[in-house]
Design a protein around this nucleic acid. Structure first.
Lengths: 108, 108
DNA sequence: TTGACGGCCATCGTTTTGCGAGGCACATTG
DNA sequence: CAATGTGCCTCGCAAAACGATGGCCGTCAA
């Protein structure tokens, strides 16, 4: 998968995922990897900066949770503002796909 | 339209357009602007570097043509290698859309 | 005739984003 | 005990698009 295409779609993916419930970083990576059958492996160098940025703009929030074994995990949860933003992003995404489709032609 | 989404899709657009026949820079910009109803204005700073890069890899070729009024235009035309590349890119594009769709959910 | 406008080419520096590599810490398993 | 897996993160780099800018030349109205 060409990485260039991915640019800009990460926040969309993240917000969509978090819409299903809070998740922690490692879990996000694994979930994406599994759901795409391994074709897309979200990298940590892309994930954490994106997550932190989303948090800085208050689209998501985070909190630490201690597991039974004593280890900590940082969970990220979507905020109301994030849901609103997601809605707008989805619309943008659809427009974008339509636009490209208009030039490339319908799916083969 | 969020510019970040566009990243990586420019070569795909360009190649698709040139598949319809040779075009010159200004014409490409105008065509894109008109076909998208103005929502997407391809910028020169994005177009020319992309065009030159496509030419450097021999996916397209270029030639100058003199108009009746004496002015010159630089036309770009797709090459066989470019068509092959376009086919591959299209497939990648479809995979990409499917993937995002899988997370974002089907179109509203 | 001069000046604004539009056609037409292009580059430059900045910003944004993802990537690869690396680092640190602790738990479980062999 | 060592290796592997879980789990967090940062840093420097490369690629791409952006906005600004520049230049050249016709044309058409003032």
């Amino acid at each position: 998968m060409d990485r260039e295409l991915l640019k800009g779609s990460t926040p969309l993916l993240l917000l969509s995922l978090l819409c299903e419930g809070p998740m922690y970083g490692y879990q996000i990576i694994e979930t994406v990897r599994q759901r795409t059958g391994g074709t897309y492996t979200l990298k940590e160098g892309a994930l954490y900066p994106a997550l932190h940025k989303l948090e800085a703009t208050e689209f998501i929030s985070s909190y630490w949770e201690t597991q039974e074994n004593g280890r900590e995990r940082r969970y990220y949860a979507i905020q109301p503002a994030g849901e609103a933003f997601l809605t707008a992003k989805k619309k943008e995404w659809n427009q974008f796909v339509d636009m490209v489709q208009a030039f490339v032609g319908p799916r083969a």
